[in-house]
Computed example of a mutant assay.
Amino acid sequence: MDVRAAGPADLDRIVDLHTRARIAYYGEGGLPVGEIVTPELAREQRAGWMAAIDAPHKHVRCATVDGVLVGLLAMGPPHTPETNAAQLYQIHVDPDRWGRGIGGTLHGLFLRHLETEGLSVGLLEVWERNTRARAFYTRHGWHLDGTTRPGPADAPYLGMRRSAP
């Protein structure tokens, strides 16, 4: 597997993988596909990913196997005024490749980012009903920090944090 910085030419493949991952995890959480995939959300996804790719203070990484996009990592400054921290915005893995270590590799890159930048804390949010992601992050040393914000289907996004390695 190769991991590299994302560029504008990756946008279509990034949006496609992100959409398939969202359908899988929101679907497992009981959200109908019609609420996950809408033209408005598709526009927001494209704009959001392009802004993240272009932002000098954010980092988007593509994991590929034989030239095929299999995973994504997005990270950067925290959403809150936390000091000495970085936010893990998103890790997405092609649902057909779950359980093959791709997410763990991308997570490791986030931890290396904390180390290289001299940051002591990692922050993230996970949808309450995304039990697969919650278990993944817990296995990797994250714990709930008591913060929440509204999410789809009356299930909040839960804040998690972990110390840098």
Rank of each mutant, 00 (worst) to 15 (best):
R132S: 12
T83N: 05
E125N: 04
L106H: 12
Q45G: 01
E40M: 07
A6L: 10
G159K: 06
Y137G: 09
G76N: 09
A47M: 10
V93W: 08
H59I: 09
R134N: 11
V65L: 08
R162G: 02
D96H: 07
A85V: 03
P77T: 06
W98R: 12
M75L: 10
W98A: 05
L11N: 00
P77V: 01
E35A: 05
R13S: 14
P156R: 09
A51L: 02
H57L: 11
L158F: 00
I53F: 06
G27S: 04
V70N: 00
P95M: 10
V121F: 06
L123T: 03
R134M: 02
G76S: 03
Q87R: 08
P165D: 07
L123Q: 04
G76V: 00
G48D: 09
P156Q: 01
Y25N: 06
G27I: 09
R22F: 06
Y26M: 15
L123G: 02
L106A: 00
P150K: 05
V33K: 14
D54T: 08
H57N: 15
H107I: 06
R149M: 11
I36K: 05
K58H: 15
Y137K: 13
P150Q: 08
A52F: 03
T83Q: 05
A52Y: 04
T116P: 00
D10V: 02
G108K: 09
E28R: 14
G67Y: 06
A5T: 10
R43C: 01
N130P: 08
E35Y: 07
D145I: 04
T64N: 01
V3Y: 10
L88D: 12
R162L: 02
R161T: 14
L88Y: 03
L158N: 05
P56L: 08
T116I: 11
A21Y: 13
I91Y: 11
I14F: 02
G99D: 07
Y25H: 15
N84R: 11
G48C: 13
M75I: 04
R97I: 13
V70T: 13
G108P: 02
T38C: 03
L106I: 04
A51S: 12
A74F: 00
A63R: 11
G67C: 06
A6N: 13
L124C: 03
Q90N: 13
T147F: 10
P165M: 05
G108Q: 07
G118M: 03
P165H: 12
T19G: 13
A164N: 01
M1G: 04
A5G: 15
P95N: 09
L109N: 06
T83S: 08
E115W: 11
G151C: 11
D2I: 06
D66K: 09
K58M: 15
L124E: 01
I102C: 00
G99K: 14
A135K: 10
P156W: 08
R161Y: 06
E115S: 12
T105I: 00
G159T: 07
L41T: 02
R100I: 02
A52P: 02
L41V: 01
E82K: 01
D54A: 15
